[in-house]
Amino acid sequence: MTGTPTSEVPMVHADRVSKSFGSLEVLKSISLTVNRGEVLCLVGPSGSGKSTFLRCINHLERVDAGRLIVDGELIGYVERGDRLYEMHPREAARQRRDIGMVFQRFNLFPHMTAVENVAEAPIRVKGMKKDDAYARARELLARVGLASRADAYPAHLSGGQQQRVAIARALAMEPKLMLFDEPTSALDPELVGEVLQVMKQLAESGMTMIVVTHEMGFAREVADSLVFMDGGVVVESGDPREVLSNPQHQRTRSFLSKVL
């Protein structure tokens, strides 16, 4: 799936990214690259900094050191000369529009129906016309298999349906990159499949994705690369089938023996 020329700028380029909360160093010099149309799966034990790294990519957290570059654009800061300037919130919001995010706990807006959830940001942020936005929202909901539930409130949807609405909501902004933070971890086992199916289709359509997950089957089948993180560092990375069947590091081995 990676037929992109190497001369092209990668979609995500993390260069020695570090992040601390107070004295707790959560990310220690993370470097990785995701090319256009690639799917990267990020795995690792709880507390290893996976969520924090995702949140840094769309500047929900600010990085302390290193550079995060999405589609050739530095995230969260403006570089002029050899100085970095903090970005205006308006600019940061503009950068986030192009980066979709799906959360473990869905975070749908409970006071809006599914279709309103999906149409909200295109209308308010992009200034799209209401009719167009709703038509498009219904299309997207149909794409995730929820055409008939478009007018339901989140509370009346199952977890799997809610997460699919959340995916449609993120897609409505036509992002160039999608971030998934354990999208199936809050779901009952029988509902996991429907969400993974939607994500797989999305990957096949050429979307660039970073997926934090414990679903190794998905990683093996869909991902182009797999990164194993522990204690805020990248321990091991490479082709998912390779890493999963033949892990090089002791820490990777012991983690995989627990989740597989």
Binding site: A93, R97, G100, F109, H111, R124, V125, R169
Partner: peptide
């Protein structure tokens, strides 16, 4: 829930818009 503000922010909604459309109604 904090996740509401976060989801709105991640969609590119500004702080005031998030307040008005997402947080205050809830």
């Amino acid at each position: 829930d904090k996740g509401q503000e976060e989801a709105a922010t991640a969609l590119g909604m500004g702080w005031l818009l998030t307040m008005r459309r997402v947080v205050l109604p809830q």
